[in-house]
Design a protein around this nucleic acid. Sequence first.
DNA 1: AATGTTCGCAACCGCTTCCGG
DNA 2: GCCGGAAGCGGTTGCGAACAT
Length: 289
Amino acid sequence: MTRKPAAAQQRRRGGEVAPEERTTALKRGAWTPDEDELLARAVARDGEGQWRTLPRRAGLLRCGKSCRLRWMNYLRPDIKRGPIAADEEDLILRLHHLLGNRWSLIAGRLPGRTDNEIKNYWNSHLSKKLMARGIDPRTHLPLAAASAAGSSRSHRDPEAAAAGSASKTTPPALEPSSAAPAPAPPPPAQPSPSSGAGADDGGGSDFAGSMMDLGADGLKGFGDPFCAPAADAALPRGGFDLGSCALVDDDTFSSFLDSLINEGHMAVDFFGDHKSSADGENDHGGARA
DNA sequence: AATGTTCGCAACCGCTTCCGG
DNA sequence: GCCGGAAGCGGTTGCGAACAT
């Protein structure tokens, strides 16, 4: 699908106005090429960070949050354009199985891809593929159990219809329907509510941090090489005590993750033929360049 | 050809976590 | 230790394009 030009979406929804926007009329909606250039120039000059003050320095009538998002998801020079390749798709699937909706962590393993892009790709392509094959996209388990719950969250959400609500107030993996999947297989690595996400603020690279959020349950099924058996005892929000593990720096975790990704037992073969089917269906993505 | 529906992406929102004072 | 601001994250939604009828 060819995408609209950047300026096409001039007027977007008129939601609530952020506090900082009430005082100065900040612009919203689609970014124009001129704005992009101002932003890119400012970041090139001053570096990333200081998003709050960047708009002023750059001469932009945008909030810092919006500038950061635009830079991270669109303007960064290392962003890779074009369709998600089959191997990337495969990696996303495996990482999602391992990490759940930790888009920033997943993106951290896919050079040039952004969390937003991966999230969108997951919601629009991969979750549908999984469902078409009778697999719950969130739990990576057979759909049968999850489908009973079936309350829909959003008419657009492909997962909702089959797997129930994923609203912020109802963490998907903790819902009865999906929280009590078959006892044996690796748990749906969906360790905490949506907001649990923030726990690893190091961005995609803080894998030690991600370990903490993963929770022991999320690792046991994979051989649990770092974590003591009792590590998950009564820890809130699914986290576990790093102190009880023989961990862990980012490199170590990164290697660990690599081994999980590459190793056979982790590689649940969601799509036995998914590479070929992905090739066939590869209308996705494309569009952005 | 016109109209309706679905799809995909970019952007926004609310929340959590981090960090410095 | 507490508090407030900044940054980051995941979920959600608006909108144009593509597709179907």
